[in-house]
Structure formats: C-alpha cells, structure tokens
C-alpha cells in the first residue's frame, strides 16, 4: 500500500514554551481511515494544523501526496481538505455561496455539478439557498465537510467530527465517512470517542502529552493488547475468593455475585478449563457464564495511564 502522507521528525513548541508535539514520525497509507486518539490537549489538533498549514512548521518535513507542505505548499494544500473542530464560517452567507468560495479559494474553476454532487451526498442540496445561520447544528457540521470536499481533496482531515453531535447523526456521519473512503479519499480523524475509532478506523495512532505512543492496525492492536474476560454469574454470592484459586487472575464484581477471570486469548493455555475444574473442586457453583473481548477503550486507558 502506498504512502500518501509522510510526517518526518515534526515537532512543535509554541511561543509560550509549551511543547505541543515531540519529534514525530508517521506515515498514512493511501485509502485508509486513520484515527488519531488522545485526550484533550494531547497534540492532535497541533499535528493537523502543522500538516494543513494553520500552524507554522519549524522542525521536520511533511510530504502530502508527493508534495512538500512548505516548499510546494500550493500542490500539497490542493490535495488536503480540513474539517475543523468548530463550525467556523460566515453565517450570513448562503450554503451555495460558501461552497463556491471554498472551491475558488483552492484554485479551482467553477464546477456546479461537483458542488451539487457533494451537497446531495450530504443531504444539503435542498438547503443550498438557505443562509448558514438558519441551518441546524448537524447541518452546519455537514456543511463544514462539504466545504472541505469542494476542491476534491485526496486527503481529508476530520478534527473531532462528532463532538457534540447526537447519536443518530453520529451514525450517519460514520456511514458518510466510510462512503468517502470507498470513493478513494484517505481519511485522518481525531477523536476522543473511542467508539468512533473502533467503528471506523483501519489503523489507530495513540497520542498523549505530545508524544505518539503507538501506531498499529486496529485489529492487531486489539488482539495484541486486548485481553479477554470470562464472566461467571454465581449461584451464591461470595464474600471473598477462595485461597485455593489464587493461581488465577480473578476478581469479584457486583457484591460477590460475579466472578471475573482475565486471560490472554492468544496464549496456548488460556486456563479456562483448569479454572472451571478448580471451581467445581472448591464448590463454587455458577448459573451462567460468557466471555468478552476488552474494548479499545480499555486499551487506550491502559496505554495513556502508562505515560508519566
């Protein structure tokens, strides 16, 4: 798979002395959805700003679709669309006027057919003559995406696309993002909704305190770092775990009514059958059991908490 965005040794320290980003290397593959996860203030928006040109690049090099973002900024920026975190546009303009403005700004001649296609794909065509201030919050957010797509970018940055968006609209937005990826657009999204990354991303990067902690395929990451849990619903509540079960990684939940065994699902010996036999031997009876894969959220919390 070819690399569409290459970030090499990029760092950022603001005039206030705050180091928003430590030296960072990152490659984004053409056609993938890459999710950059991190808590607030982790450096996600700074990294996006450095790629898109809204933040001054002072150290390192960024190549976007074959063009250096500083020396060949025209070529590079023409390939990039940016959807910022906040809805930021002139609210007195009409939807159609702001779309034409965005396309012109990126150096392209008028193409009403393309703008119509974009607006229709985002269910905004009927609102083309409406002033932006009359649109609902969800429509404004979709309009920000439409503006970013007006110049047919090959890389699209979505900075917290579903922040403050209701559940239904979030699902619609995810479907729309998948549709964009299917049309050949590479998508980089930042989010602190783990569910969003879990749902959409092909690869995941975790950033915290300006440092990119890891970059990995989502499925590999979840397999590698995610354990499984066996949950047993006990017939009789337990006050404590029998010492004869000390070899197993067990915890009691729900006032002793649930026994949880954490294990490595890829290990040769998971210990599940041994545990079940041991439970029978010590007289612990259960009425139901099931296993659960730990979520990306568990992995994320564990990774972020490891950084001092």
């Amino acid at each position: 798979m070819s690399v569409i965005l290459s970030i090499e040794g990029v760092s950022k320290t603001y005039a206030t002395g705050v180091q928003a980003l430590q030296p960072t290397d990152l490659s984004i593959n053409r056609g993938e959805i890459f999710a950059l996860l991190g808590p607030n203030g982790a450096g996600k928006t700074s990294l996006i700003g450095l790629v898109c040109g809204t933040v001054r690049l002072e150290a390192g090099r960024i190549i976007a679709d074959g063009a250096d973002t500083v020396r060949q900024y025209r070529r590079a920026r023409a390939k990039i669309g940016l959807v910022p975190q906040e809805v930021s546009t002139d609210s007195f303009e009409t939807v159609w006027a702001t779309m034409r403005f965005s396309r012109g700004l990126f150096g392209l001649s008028r193409n009403d057919a393309h703008l119509e296609k974009v607006l229709k794909s985002l269910s905004l065509w009927e609102k083309r003559e409406a002033k932006i201030q009359t649109l609902s919050g969800g429509m404004k957010r979709r309009l920000m995406i439409a503006k970013a797509l007006s110049h047919e970018p090959s890389i699209l940055f979505l900075d917290e696309p579903s922040a403050g968006v209701d559940v239904e609209l979030r699902r619609d937005m995810w479907a729309m993002v998948r549709g964009l990826r299917d049309s050949g657009v590479t998508i980089i999204l930042t989010t602190h909704y783990i569910e969003e990354a879990e749902e959409l991303a092909d690869r995941i990067g975790v950033i915290n305190k300006g440092r990119l902690i890891l970059v990995e395929e989502k499925t590999t990451l979840m397999k590698r770092l995610g354990g499984r849990k066996l949950k047993l619903h006990l017939a009789q509540p337990l006050a404590s775990i029998d010492p004869r079960l000390a070899d197993f990684n067990l915890t009691l939940e729900q006032d002793g009514r649930r026994l949880v065994y954490a294990f490595d699902s890829v290990a040769e010996d998971t210990g599940v059958s041994r545990l079940l036999r041991s439970l029978e031997a010590v007289g612990v009876d259960y009425k139901d059991l099931h296993t659960e894969q730990s979520s990306l959220e568990d992995i994320f919390v564990s990774l972020v908490s490891q950084i001092p």
Partner: peptide, 16 residues
C-alpha cells in the same frame, strides 16, 4: 471577521 469567527482556517490552509 474571519479571525473572529474562526473561518480564517480555510484561508490559512488553502494554496494561496
């Protein structure tokens, strides 16, 4: 006005 509304991001990120 675009600085105040935040819309300046579009100009700063454009090939201009």
């Amino acid at each position: 006005m675009p600085k105040w509304s935040g819309a300046i991001y579009e100009i700063l990120s454009a090939p201009v």
